[in-house]
């Protein structure tokens, strides 16, 4: 929204929804979903060039004027991730990197030790580092301390659609963070995204929830609204939770009536 810009890595964005491009059934569906989402920043992966592949995700992003954010998906060590980031910088002319260093294929959970190592190296190398991390307040703090431009904790495993499994950890991370906290991974539907924003996340990153939805374009629209609704709710300040009811109609001025009359 124009009166509530999102600042990340020294740039400002109107949209607080970062999209991925993986999982879309076609480039056409992807393009229409990206437009519907309102995103201004979108990830791509770096892979071996296949001369037989037609069409390019880069041309879609270029046409839509969306900033490309390369990731290091598929990397298991700091060394692989650093080299992939440098290749992405060379290929795409951006020093922004969505840093992913995962521990195993089954969970795709981040390997905190390798992640921190890679983050430190890439920050020193001049990158704007956006690390996909566990929902661990301590690791989030350490990533910020080595100079990451944001921290991107997972709500639940990539592609699981299980939402935010530990909202309390998100609150702890947001409370102490001096950089934007961005939900990364786990969003399944709009309520997950709204919750992330209500908890104080500065933005949300998602892909599968949209690209693998039955109607991706509709879900993209839904996510755009969910991000905005959650953000507005966060700024508005929710009412405190209460154990008992609190009447919203005044007690004063209530008519004194015989409870037995009129008969009904």
């Amino acid at each position: 929204m124009a009166d509530d810009l999102f600042t990340l890595g020294g740039r400002t964005f109107s949209s607080r929804l970062i999209m991925g491009t993986g999982g879309a059934p076609s480039l056409d569906v992807l393009e229409r979903s990206l437009v519907a989402s309102g995103t201004e920043l979108t990830t791509v992966a770096m892979r071996r060039l296949d001369p037989t592949v037609q069409g390019s995700v880069l041309s879609v992003l270029d046409r839509l004027g969306i900033q490309v954010l390369p990731n290091t998906a598929g990397c298991y060590t700091a060394g692989e991730a650093v080299l992939t980031a440098r290749l992405a910088r060379e290929a795409l002319g951006t020093d922004w990197i969505k840093l992913e260093v995962v521990a195993d294929e089954r969970t795709l959970l981040p390997d905190g030790v390798e992640l921190l190592d890679a983050a430190e190296t890439l920050v020193d190398d001049g990158f704007t580092v956006l690390p996909y991390t566990n929902d661990d307040p301590v690791l989030a703090r350490k990533l910020e301390d080595v100079g990451c431009a944001a921290v991107m904790p997972l709500g639940s495993p990539i592609g699981s659609g299980l939402g935010i499994r530990n909202p309390h950890n998100f609150e702890l991370i947001v409370e102490r963070a001096g950089v934007p906290v961005i939900l990364d991974a786990g969003a399944g539907t709009a309520s997950d995204v709204a919750l992330a924003m209500e908890l104080g996340c500065a933005a949300v990153m998602l892909a599968s929830a949209v690209t693998r939805a039955q109607v991706p374009v509709l879900m993209a629209t839904s996510m755009r609204h969910a991000v905005e609704a959650g953000r507005l709710a966060h700024r508005a300040g929710r009412i405190p939770r209460r154990h008992f009811a609190e009447a919203s109609s005044p007690a004063a001025g209530l008519a004194v009536l015989d409870p037995e009359r009129p008969a009904f």
Binding site: G22, A24, T43, V44, A45, P70, A73, L83, L87
Partner: peptide, 29 residues
């Protein structure tokens, strides 16, 4: 395992057993 900037490709002669990786951006993340 070392990035070679595009401008240096014509001057980079390859040798026996060299491993070349050529990457581009694809849908992901």
């Amino acid at each position: 395992e070392t990035v070679v900037p595009r401008g240096q490709w014509p001057a980079t002669a390859l040798g026996e057993g060299d491993r070349v990786e050529v990457l581009t951006a694809v849908q992901g993340g």
